[in-house]
């Protein structure tokens, strides 16, 4: 640490604090207030203590949504991480191909999330979508609006399509940071490409891959717009993830009390995840082993 100790720097941070306090602290305090009261009518509320928390924590639909969320995140990570690494390994190391690959990979990341949902909604429809029509012609009855398994396949395909490029970009950045001497040494030793990968490339990519893993886990944990547009949480509740369920309670049914309690529990889960994320990132930044 060779930073200059100076508390006057606080003045530089104040504008940010004002803005973020306005849009984070005030709402958060409001949510705490809602979560402890039964709001009967505008301006009329009854203090109910921790009732809502009890109700929400014992709500089996929330448990279902939570397990569904973990399953979704796990499946997505299991597919995206290896696929992303493979793509990064296959990417060209020099020439015009680099620019082309980078731009192509970044494209899905920068499409508005509801458009992602729209693209896939069109793409998988049995009547007008290429994917839906093709797979139905092969004799598989595929309909993501009626069959839960098909809906899951669609949502996961969409998520993999949308975010694998991020993993690939990160892994590529990690690969580029490996000095050429390592490869030469491996060549002299006559190491196979698998051994080169396992003993040189994978350990060297550890930092970026940790970042990719955590980023992907957190963002998939918060997913809302894409499945909302694609399936609306259905069929039934089979693709209702945490955010979709929360919006259903808090906005559509206007149950402010349970919505508030749910929000805070959700927020605490994510807070724990971000804390771990931040600690790991600090160490990666200092070049320590994770």
């Amino acid at each position: 640490m060779n930073k200059w100790g100076d508390n006057k720097a606080w003045f530089l941070v104040i504008p940010v604090l004002v803005f973020v306090a306005f849009s984070a602290i005030i709402p958060l305090m409001t949510v705490i207030n809602y979560s402890l009261q039964d709001i009967l009518a505008p301006g009329k509320a009854l203090f109910v203590g921790t009732e809502w928390y009890k109700k929400v924590l014992h709500d089996y639909r929330l448990h279902d949504a939570l397990w569904r969320q973990f399953l979704f995140s796990a499946l997505v990570l299991l597919i995206e991480m290896p696929l992303g690494i493979l793509i990064a390994l296959a990417m060209p190391k020099k020439g015009w191909g680099i620019s082309f690959s980078l731009v192509t990979l970044a494209l899905p990341l920068l499409i508005p999330w509801n458009t992602i949902g729209t693209i896939w909604m069109i793409f998988v429809r049995p009547d007008i979508g290429l994917f839906g029509a093709a797979i139905n012609n092969l004799g598989v009855a595929f309909d993501h609006t009626r069959r839960p398994l098909d809906a899951w396949v669609t949502v996961i395909l969409m998520e993999v399509w949308h975010w694998t490029p991020l993993v690939a970009l990160l892994a590529y950045a990690g690969l580029r940071a490996i000095p050429e001497v390592y490869y030469q040494a491996a060549k002299i030793d006559g190491a196979s490409s698998w051994k080169t990968f396992y003993y040189i490339q994978l350990p060297k990519m550890r930092g970026v891959l940790t970042i990719a893993l955590l980023l992907r886990f957190m963002d998939s944990f918060l997913i809302y717009a894409e499945p909302f547009v694609l399936t609306g949480g259905g069929p039934g509740n089979t693709t209702t993830f945490l955010s979709i369920y929360l919006v259903k309670i808090a906005v559509l049914q206007m149950d402010l009390g349970p919505g508030g309690a749910f929000s805070l529990i959700y927020f605490l889960i994510v807070l724990l995840l971000s804390f771990i994320f931040y600690q790991v990132l600090q160490r990666v930044g200092k070049g320590e082993k994770v």
Binding site: I26, M29, I32, L36, Q37, I39, G43, F47
Partner: peptide
């Protein structure tokens, strides 16, 4: 501040 529905316990907690 009516829309924030302050109550004594939450006010004490936040303070």
């Amino acid at each position: 501040l009516e829309w924030m529905y302050w109550t004594l316990p939450t006010a004490i907690f936040c303070i």
